[in-house]
Amino acid sequence: MSGLFALLVALVAVASVVLLAQGSIAIPIGEVLRALTGQGTESDLSRTIVLDARLPKVVTGLLAGAALAVGGAQMQTLFRNPLADPFVLGVSSGAVLGAAVVILGTSGVGWLAGLGVVSQLGVTGAAVAGAAGVLLIALGIARRVGDPVVVLVVGVMLGYLAGALVDMLVYYTDPDRLQALAGFTRGSVRNVTWDELGVIAASCGVVLVLSVFLAQPLNALLLGERYAGSLGVNVRRVHFLCLASVAVLSGITTAYCGAIGFVGLAAPHLARGLLRTSDHRLVLPASALIGSIIVLVAEYVAGGNGLTATSLPLNSVTAFVGAPVILWVLLSGRAKRSAR
């Protein structure tokens, strides 16, 4: 078990260094390591590229991938649904709607055109508010209905409704402003600066830190809410902490990086498959490492390798990982039911 975690940590380190070294200007790995450790580099340009242009992208990928994977594992446990992810209740669509209202409804162009950090926080706040609004509606319906399947369907419908409202805003807005909104439908970690990274790190950090304290309660929830309650677990509090933190995470990552799909769905299943256990004390940290690896490798394939002049949306690459995992989950579940 420790060997597996050591391998995952090594893969994260290798992927990070390679992504720092590769790009439109290739930098030797030795130069990258000297820049990271504060030693003198042969060129000031190399140091600037590594520390100012590429390091924020890599740190964002590490944090976002880890937090989305942990959030996905939590949502799968809460809803007892293997296909749940951080955006399962339409939170991502709500975040896009909130951001679209600010970007398309103001006189200036949004953060993709280079707004300062204050305006950036305004768009982010709107994205979080949109995500929280959708989540609160879904939870209100969930409290009345109580059926997890119905709650998931409601989340999908809320996502479609938010998407329809965004389409209406796009239809009635100035076409020159649409470029600012386009980034929210594509995943990317390339445009994140050090100032913006502080906000992303705070939201991702909340999810990652909470996961340490929620691992044991989530293990109890695997056996049912009634059993968890009999063990002294405050089920309502666990639900609220998980859902609220994941909602904020989804809103902020969508605002800054787009809705990075499939990571929160695929990474927990890969972690459980490798570890052959559902113990959250092991699954959550393994999911975090795998999520980071997926995002970093996907970013390298999408355009971080410097081999192409254009960059693919990050979602287009992560789908190649997530879609096979979904099929594997569905088919393995069907095989297990057939064997009984």
Results as ranks from 00 to 15, higher is better:
residue 5 F to E: 06
residue 7 L to N: 03
residue 7 L to G: 10
residue 7 L to T: 14
residue 8 L to Y: 10
residue 11 L to C: 13
residue 12 V to N: 10
residue 12 V to D: 04
residue 14 V to N: 09
residue 17 V to Q: 10
residue 18 V to G: 07
residue 26 A to I: 12
residue 29 I to Y: 09
residue 33 L to H: 06
residue 38 G to E: 04
residue 44 D to G: 14
residue 48 T to E: 11
residue 50 V to K: 00
residue 51 L to V: 14
residue 51 L to D: 08
residue 53 A to Q: 10
residue 53 A to K: 01
residue 54 R to S: 05
residue 56 P to C: 07
residue 63 L to A: 12
residue 65 G to Y: 01
residue 69 A to M: 02
residue 74 Q to G: 09
residue 75 M to H: 05
residue 76 Q to K: 04
residue 76 Q to S: 01
residue 77 T to A: 09
residue 79 F to E: 04
residue 81 N to D: 09
residue 82 P to C: 10
residue 83 L to S: 12
residue 84 A to C: 15
residue 87 F to W: 12
residue 93 S to M: 11
residue 94 G to S: 11
residue 96 V to M: 11
residue 98 G to Y: 00
residue 99 A to F: 03
residue 103 I to M: 08
residue 103 I to W: 00
residue 103 I to E: 00
residue 109 V to W: 04
residue 111 W to E: 02
residue 114 G to E: 12
residue 115 L to H: 01
residue 120 Q to K: 03
residue 126 A to I: 07
residue 126 A to W: 04
residue 127 A to I: 08
residue 132 A to G: 09
residue 133 G to L: 11
residue 143 R to Q: 11
residue 144 R to I: 14
residue 146 G to S: 03
residue 148 P to A: 13
residue 151 V to G: 03
residue 152 L to I: 15
residue 152 L to M: 14
residue 154 V to S: 07
residue 154 V to K: 09
residue 156 V to K: 04
residue 161 L to H: 05
residue 166 V to P: 02
residue 172 Y to H: 15
residue 172 Y to V: 15
residue 173 T to A: 15
residue 177 R to S: 13
residue 178 L to W: 00
residue 180 A to Y: 00
residue 180 A to R: 00
residue 180 A to H: 01
residue 182 A to H: 06
residue 183 G to L: 03
residue 186 R to S: 14
residue 202 A to S: 10
residue 203 S to V: 14
residue 204 C to H: 02
residue 205 G to Q: 12
residue 206 V to I: 15
residue 208 L to D: 06
residue 211 S to Y: 10
residue 225 E to V: 04
residue 227 Y to I: 11
residue 229 G to R: 07
residue 230 S to V: 02
residue 240 F to E: 05
residue 241 L to S: 09
residue 247 A to V: 00
residue 249 L to C: 04
residue 249 L to Y: 03
residue 250 S to D: 08
residue 250 S to W: 00
residue 251 G to R: 01
residue 251 G to V: 02
residue 253 T to D: 09
residue 261 G to H: 05
residue 264 G to Y: 03
residue 265 L to R: 08
residue 266 A to W: 00
residue 267 A to P: 01
residue 267 A to E: 01
residue 270 L to M: 13
residue 270 L to G: 01
residue 272 R to T: 06
residue 272 R to P: 00
residue 275 L to C: 08
residue 276 R to W: 01
residue 279 D to C: 10
residue 280 H to D: 10
residue 280 H to C: 07
residue 282 L to I: 01
residue 284 L to I: 13
residue 284 L to S: 11
residue 288 A to I: 10
residue 292 S to Y: 05
residue 293 I to E: 04
residue 294 I to S: 04
residue 296 L to K: 02
residue 298 A to D: 06
residue 301 V to I: 15
residue 305 N to W: 08
residue 307 L to C: 01
residue 311 S to W: 05
residue 313 P to E: 12
residue 317 V to Q: 06
residue 322 G to H: 02
residue 325 V to C: 06
residue 327 L to G: 14
residue 329 V to D: 03
residue 329 V to H: 02
residue 330 L to N: 05
residue 339 A to F: 13
